[in-house]
């Protein structure tokens, strides 16, 4: 009885195996389908990489801290900046005021932190309260958050310190940078080789991967023809 059960179980296993061994033709078709799909994925990544070149040029983009989303309520007649900050209709910047580059805490020309432009404008004092009630809303939104606290520095004249109390020159451990430096930096790669570094890198990898998959497809097809 026990032997019979073992035999049946083994039989069941072989049936599954038979079910699991599709004909070589179907297997070949499946392999080719998978490899073509992955080639498309590789090409897609290449295209997305090329489209992202301008983002990759920004050194701060990779390590940029996400900004919390600010609530925005759109009022008719008001313009909305990409960051969600509204500029009331009729607000005009005084002529001759130079455009101030937006600088987020993490820095980076490509960063799109909400409220960035408004902070810069209010910091520069170029938004006078002449635009009616909208200006209050704008200024409230644009109120700069204290990100940096300036600590008063004490500069002692030379020779004023008592003997034996030299300024601490002990070598303090240099903290590691928060952004990648040197050759490992994506923005450096992007701007390298005449601004085509990232494109060359992506192109080489894409070609290598597609060649590997082509070799596999060719071998599968050769096997199909030989049989």
């Amino acid at each position: 009885m026990a032997n019979k059960r073992i035999e049946l179980e083994q039989y069941k296993y072989y049936v599954t195996l038979l079910d699991e061994e599709p004909s070589r033709k179907i297997v070949r078709r499946g392999v080719v389908t998978c490899l073509i799909v992955m080639s498309l994925l590789v090409l897609g990544m290449f295209v997305l990489g090329i489209l992202s070149t301008d983002l990759a040029k920004n050194a701060g983009n990779i390590t940029q801290t996400p900004q919390p989303a600010t609530p925005s309520t759109t009022v008719p007649g008001q313009q909305q900046t990409p960051g969600g900050t509204q500029i009331p209709g009729g607000t005009q910047l005084p002529s001759g005021v130079p455009e101030i580059p937006t600088q987020t805490p993490s820095g980076g020309p490509g960063s799109m932190a909400p409220g960035g432009p408004a902070v810069a404008l209010s910091d520069a004092g170029v938004l006078p309260a002449q635009s009616g009630t909208g200006a209050g809303v704008l200024l409230a939104q644009a109120a700069p958050t204290p990100t940096q606290t300036s600590t008063p520095t004490l500069t002692a004249p030379p020779g004023s310190m008592p003997a034996g109390t030299a300024p601490s020159t002990a070598p303090s451990e240099k903290p590691l940078p928060e952004t990648t430096t040197g050759a490992g930096n994506l923005s450096k790669l992007t701007t390298g080789a005449g601004g085509r570094g990232l494109q060359i890198y992506l192109l080489v990898l894409t070609i290598v991967l597609i060649v590997v998959m082509y070799l596999a497809i060719r071998r599968v097809r050769l096997e199909g023809r030989s049989k």
Binding site: V42, M45, F46, L48, G49, S52, L55, A56, N61, I62, T63, L176, T180, A183, G184, N185, L186, L189, L198, Y201, L202, L205, T206, L209
Partner: peptide, 23 residues
């Protein structure tokens, strides 16, 4: 191939004290 595109577009981000190549 995928990682530089992913980190550039913030599909995911790495925050690890490590040796980095192309971020």
């Amino acid at each position: 191939l995928i990682q530089p595109v992913a980190v550039t577009n913030h599909w995911w981000t790495w925050n690890l004290k490590s040796f980095y190549i192309i971020d």
